[in-house]
Design a protein around this nucleic acid. Structure first.
Length: 851
RNA sequence: GCGGGUGUGGCGGAAUGGUAGACGCGACAGACUCAAACUCUGUUUCCGCGAGGAGUGUCGGUUCGAGUCCGACCACCCGCACCA
């Protein structure tokens, strides 16, 4: 063996793995299966360190499970539809398809040198017609099953990207990609009925034991279940058809504190009033405008207008309340109408104060007296209250009890119903974009909306499109758009909306089980491989992607594309942290910041290499092109090899936390791997007739290392696994054991390192006479007998502070230990002839002398 | 505002209620070298020459014993946000 030259040996082993087909996933009923999946990448064209970290984690798991005898599925694909391809076409010309496929080729070429254990024969891109055609087939099945529908909806319109955005794609009133202020626009849109599953998606979160608590909580909040009362107010002087106003409240116990009824500016009644009354029309127009401007979002002032309509209080027909239109009431939550109880709701309080409406407390804190309020009194529902204007339950009760009894009273008296509502809205999937999966329906003047026939799938995107005008090229592509009605054969128009790319990523995990099938899935394959045993990805997908996937798996099960056991497709989820880096900044003549790449900076002096100018070092943040704090994985691989990059991203921080990339850390990783290489060389050239010295000690350390590394990998504590490997390497390097024992230890070290640094591990394995490839070698097992020590050193504490220690046989009885402790020099000194108050011996652990 | 998380050396981070700081980085010292780099060996929480003392964001509590459990507070980070 010679110098550590990763560039040569890494290629060699990658070729060897490929030749042996070690990563080809096979359905093998004789073996347990393990499906490990990392969130597939968007083909931007360049891999970044975040990818390296994500895929290395998956690779460690996959390789480890392979060694443990599992039949492993570890696939890779591309989330290939989406706006960047179109944006690139608009900015630079060219076609989104060419841009995408060439990016995929580039990225694949960058990923391969990492030596990941991926079954590349299963690779696909979501923009392959073979993939999206199957997606269209499922869409038709879901349409038939009533899981998809069309409705007129006010949507978020991004005026820059010229597209509809989902609520969750709007951040602070701006489009998440363009940053443009979002406008409201009414369009007919396609929706998945995810709201039908709201309760189930919420309840099933409890079963996802191996998901991070944080993600489950975020989803639970997003689904947003609430229990409340729905009832109607009878109106006075309302327009035709509005004899009642239906409201929903989670605090029916505050009904006696009502001082007005509020309706949304988008409420049907508001629309009628708008048409009839110019003053109202003007007010409503103001509300609509207000909803989207930045100023309104920041100040969020509550405005309202009295409609002149009155309603009768359900508990006292003589009591009339005014009906106001108010800008803070949302049409798409509850019924779009509320009753306002200013005493116990801060929004209502502000509103009532502004418009001089009465503020009547319903309850006070237990033991308190009624007093003038300066803000709304909104106690936790679990708090005990004294009701001074209650109508249900006892005078003193908790808020929860008050709500429950109010619902019971309303139901008993027949004027209201207890209902459960969810914040979760249906999933709008229509996008007015070209580069997405076409929605396979046709609009016919006589037949209406007609599903495309399955034998006509896939409905392919046309290639001859241009992006010189804003908007959807499909809309202005007559030969593609114009078609015949599948039902009556008359001329018709193809749907020009394409699907949200979240649809593409909502089932790719299932497609990987039968990636080339002519149906969306194949029952036997799905049955064997599903579920994903370990899913790994970023926390940024905690809500949308994961919630949509959970819904989609249910929809696929309902339409026969997945077995019932796969409705929760991801058994275990791990969310990894980001890779961060320091930011280097200088300022130009105009005071504007100028960012510099890490390689342009001399860290010793904190200056620019080129000019010697001082740079400001800003603490680490996520690597981003705009701040130039990026390290290109390809440069690292070229300089140090893939194993170094893999070792580093796994070593420094717990995987769920961010890891900071530092040049010194990367060098240290490389140095260590070189040390391992040299150690291997040194051991191989030892004389064969060394006397057996400390053989037992080295073997014990080896079994300790096996146990610790295995435990750490099983628990996703890769940084700790690596710490143990450092420790064991140091022990081995200092050992005087005989050659065969050191060789055995070296081979074991290779096996334990193999999931993280597979190429180096193969080299070491081969060099130490290991049989075959280390990737195929069974994972070593720790011998429990080698893990127990004969003697144990017990720390002696005096009043809880460590003062001394005593070494005793492992299972010495406590009474014997006590004698030894009392004979300890330090203890004798401290006791000064007296007796300890108490002597605590925790066998095998610690001794505490209390004086 | 609501919900969640985090806080340990110069830095990244270890510690089933039982020796705080594993392992790594950095720093320092020594060996090798004409010299430097590389490499190797050692030291490295703080105060103190030392004996010793202090120490896990702050204050309190439980315990023989608290980084870990409980209560209050502070700081930072993340998610949601007019959801009735």
């Amino acid at each position: 063996m010679s110098r550590y030259e990763p560039s040569q040996s890494e290629q060699k082993w990658q070729a060897a793995w490929e030749a042996a087909g070690v990563f080809t996933a096979r359905r093998d009923p004789a073996r347990p299966k393990y499906y490990v999946l990392e969130m597939f990448p968007y083909p931007s064209g360049r891999i970044h360190m975040g990818h390296v970290r994500n895929y290395t984690m998956g690779d460690v798991v996959a390789r480890y499970k392979m060694s443990c005898g599992f039949s492993v599925l570890h696939p890779m694909g591309w989330d290939a539809f989406g706006m960047p391809a179109e944006n690139a076409a608009m900015e630079r010309g060219g076609h989104p398809k060419d841009w995408t496929y060439s990016n995929i080729a580039d990225m694949r070429a960058q990923m391969k040198p990492l030596g990941l254990s991926i079954d590349w024969s299963r690779e696909f891109a979501t923009c392959d017609p073979e993939y999206y055609g199957q997606q269209q087939a499922m869409f038709l099945d879901m349409l038939e099953a009533g899981l998809v529908y069309r409705k007129n909806a006010v949507v978020n319109w991004d005026p820059v990207d010229m597209t509809v955005l989902a609520n969750e794609q709007v951040e602070d009133g701006r489009g998440w990609r363009s940053g443009a202020l979002v406008e409201r626009k009414e369009l007919t849109q396609w929706f998945f009925k995810i709201s039908d599953y709201a309760g189930e998606l919420l309840a099933a979160l409890d079963g996802l034991k191996d998901w991070p608590e944080k993600v489950r909580l975020m989803q639970a909040n997003w689904i947003g279940q609430s229990r409340g009362l729905q009832f109607s107010f009878d109106t006075v002087d309302a327009p035709e058809g509005f004899g009642k106003i239906e409201v929903y409240t989670t605090r029916p116990d505050t009904l006696m504190g009502a001082s007005f009824v509020g309706i949304s500016p988008d409420h049907p009644l508001a629309k009628v009033l708008e048409a009839a009354n110019p003053e109202m029309a003007e007010f409503i127009a103001q509300c609509r405008k207000g909803g989207t401007t930045e100023e309104a979002i920041e100040t969020a002032e509550k405005i309202g207008l009295d409609t002149g309509i009155r309603v009768k209080h359900p508990l006292d027909p003589a009591w009339e309340l005014p009906v106001w239109i108010a800008n803070f009431i949302l049409m798409d939550y509850g019924t779009g109408a509320i009753f306002g109880c200013p005493a116990h709701d801060q929004r209502d309080f502000e509103f009532a104060t502004k418009y001089a409406l009465p503020i009547n407390p319903v309850f006070v804190a237990e033991g308190a007296e009624e007093a003038r309020l300066s803000e709304a009194f909104v106690p936790m529902k679990s708090e005990t209250l004294r009701y001074i204007r209650g109508f249900a339950g006892t005078e003193v009760q908790t808020g929860d009890e008050g709500v429950a009894s109010a619902i019971t009273v309303a139901e008993t008296q027949g004027w209201g119903t207890g209902v459960t509502k969810y914040r979760l809205r249906d999933w709008g999937l229509s996008r007015q974009r070209y580069w997405g999966c076409p929605i396979p329906v046709v609009h016919c003047a006589t037949c209406g909306v007609v599903p495309e026939k399955k034998e006509n799938l896939p409905i392919r995107l046309p290639d001859d499109v241009t992006f010189d005008k804003p908007g959807n090229p499909l809309d202005r592509h007559p030969t593609w758009r114009d078609c015949t009605c599948p039902a009556c054969g008359a001329p018709a128009r193809r749907e020009t909306d394409t699907m949200d790319t979240f649809v593409d990523s909502s089932w790719y995990y299932a497609r990987f089980t039968a990636p080339h099938a002519t149906t969306p899935t194949v029952a036997e394959d799905a049955e064997y491989w599903m579920n994903v045993d370990q899913y790994i990805g970023g926390i940024e997908h905690a809500i949308l992607h994961l919630l949509y996937s959970r819904f989609f798996a249910r929809a696929m099960a309902k339409t026969g594309h997945l077995p019932a056991k796969a409705i929760e497709p991801f058994d275990a989820l791990f969310t990894q942290g980001m890779v961060t880096h320091e930011i280097y900044k200088t300022t130009d003549g105009n005071g504007r910041p100028v960012w510099h790449l890490p390689e342009e900076v001399d860290l010793e002096t904190g200056t620019l290499k080129a000019t010697g100018e001082k740079v400001e070092i800003i603490p680490s943040a996520k690597m981003s092109k705009s701040k130039k704090n990026v390290v290109d994985p390809m440069n690292i691989i070229a300089q140090f090899g893939a194993d170094t990059a893999r070792w580093f991203v796994m070593s420094d921080s717990p995987p769920e936390r961010d890891v900071e990339w530092t040049a010194s850390g990367a060098e240290a990783a490389c140095k260590h791997l070189t040390r391992v290489w040299n150690l291997c060389d040194r051991i191989a050239s030892l004389p064969d007739d060394l006397p057996p010295r400390e053989d037992e000690a080295l073997l014990r350390a080896m079994h300790r290392a096996i146990a610790d590394v295995t435990f750490s990998i099983e628990n996703f504590a890769f940084n700790k696994a690596i710490a143990k490997l450092y420790e064991f390497t140091n022990t081995l390097a200092k050992s005087d054991a005989s050659k065969p024992v050191r060789q055995q230890a070296m081979r074991t070290l290779a096996q334990l390192m193999a999931p993280m640094v597979p190429h180096l591990a193969e080299d070491v394995w081969a060099h130490q006479g290991g049989e075959g490839l280390v990737v195929r070698a069974p994972w070593p097992k720790a011998d429990p007998a080698m893990l127990v020590e004969d003697t144990v050193t017990l720390p002696i504490q005096i009043n809880g502070k460590r003062r001394s220690e005593v070494t005793v046989p492992k299972d010495m009885p406590a009474s014997e230990v006590e004698k030894l402790v009392l004979a300890d020099e330090t203890v004798i000194k401290v006791l000064a002839g007296g007796q300890p108050k108490k002597l605590i011996v925790v066998p095998g652990r610690i001794v505490n002398v209390v004086i």
